[in-house]
């Protein structure tokens, strides 16, 4: 269609683009009014902090308030170079990546195996009871999980610690021991997520054509063979996609969990990007420096998630956008 023919009807009715837009606005005014509060929320609490990353390129005083932010001198990339050249950069990056990778190695297959095992349970009541119990950790806070870990592993009074102490005659400690601390992080992560994460796999298993199992049974396949040759291939796409996005979130090593459980004794093996930002920023009040570290993480995360999404789409999956 040519441009002139499109504008013709408007000229004929004597309306300008402006008045047409106004008419449209009046027609939809109720909807625009309705969405305004929520838009303001996103503008203030999400976009204003995005503009706030400018403080990463300034030196701001922690006590100057908003005026301190405006008055603070520009320092370019000073905070970034300081971070990249410091000992903490390597320590924090290594911890973040290693803890994330450990959590993926143990935490990613766990719900798949759990779902495959649940799928073999033919008694529906038993299956539902186990499922419901397995969801429980998802609904409780990390603070409560910390309390449960204390009950098991606190030095002296913990149930498991006490048991080990009396069995071996040694004095065990876990939460303050760098050799054991990551094990606690990974196992409590698996404990908290395995049941809930299995839901998506169980749903995928439920979508597999039952005829495949019938045909396999006629051919004399055992249940283990069916699980391996029908169920697992049937959910392989879900597995691949979830794995891609798991890797896309590799810089999220478990902020709340680590912040609640760690102590200076285990900083060397557990201090991650998020906890480092928290301590530098909100405890030591180095707002600009901490904001720079946070911005570094946000940018790398953005690249990773865009990469994960385009990879998922290349595999013919919808991705998240």
């Amino acid at each position: 269609m040519s441009r002139s023919s499109r504008t013709l009807p408007l000229q004929r009715s004597g309306e300008s683009r402006w008045s047409l837009a106004r008419k449209k606005f009046i027609k939809w005014r109720f909807y625009y009014l309705l969405i305004t509060p929520a838009l303001l929320y996103f503008l203030i609490f999400h976009y204003a902090p995005m503009a706030g990353i400018l403080i990463a390129f300034k030196d701001i005083s922690p006590f100057g308030g908003l005026q301190g932010v405006i008055d603070g001198p520009w320092v370019g990339l000073k905070h970034f170079t300081r971070f990249f050249n410091s000992f903490f950069f390597w320590n924090v990056m290594r911890n973040t990546l290693e803890i994330s990778v450990l959590k993926i190695i143990f935490g990613f297959p766990a719900p798949i195996i759990f779902a495959l095992m649940l799928n073999e349970v033919t008694r529906t009541v038993a299956k539902r009871v186990v499922q419901t119990i397995s969801y429980l950790p998802h609904f409780i806070s990390w603070v409560v999980v910390t309390g449960l870990i204390t009950a098991l592993l606190a030095s002296n009074s913990g149930l498991l610690t006490g048991l080990l102490n009396s069995l071996t005659g040694e004095s065990w400690s876990f939460l303050t021991n760098p050799d054991h601390f990551r094990g606690i992080l990974v196992s409590s992560h698996v404990w908290k997520t395995v049941g809930w994460s299995s839901i998506i796999y169980l749903a995928a298993i439920a979508g597999i054509d039952p005829h495949l199992y019938e045909a396999a049974a006629i051919d004399g396949a055992s249940r283990l063979q069916m699980a391996r040759h029908i169920t697992l291939p049937g959910i392989s796409f879900v597995i691949v996609i979830l794995f891609i996005f798991e890797v896309g979130h590799i810089l999220e090593a478990g902020f709340e969990q680590i912040l609640l459980l760690y102590s200076p004794a285990v900083y060397g093996v557990s201090d991650i990007l998020d906890t480092y930002v928290y301590r530098e920023g909100l405890i030591r009040l180095q707002y600009s420096f901490a904001a720079a570290v946070g911005l570094f993480k946000a940018i790398v995360s953005l690249i990773l998630i865009i990469g994960a999404n385009s990879l998922a789409r290349r595999l013919g999956q919808p991705g998240i956008w």
Binding site: F45, G52, L282
Partner: peptide, 21 residues
């Protein structure tokens, strides 16, 4: 408007700007 909301899902200013706000 939808994109306006969606951007906040993949990028954020981080802990410090949010706290200061």
């Amino acid at each position: 408007l939808t994109i306006f909301v969606f951007i906040t899902m993949i990028f954020s200013g981080g802990l410090i700007p949010r706290f200061l706000l």
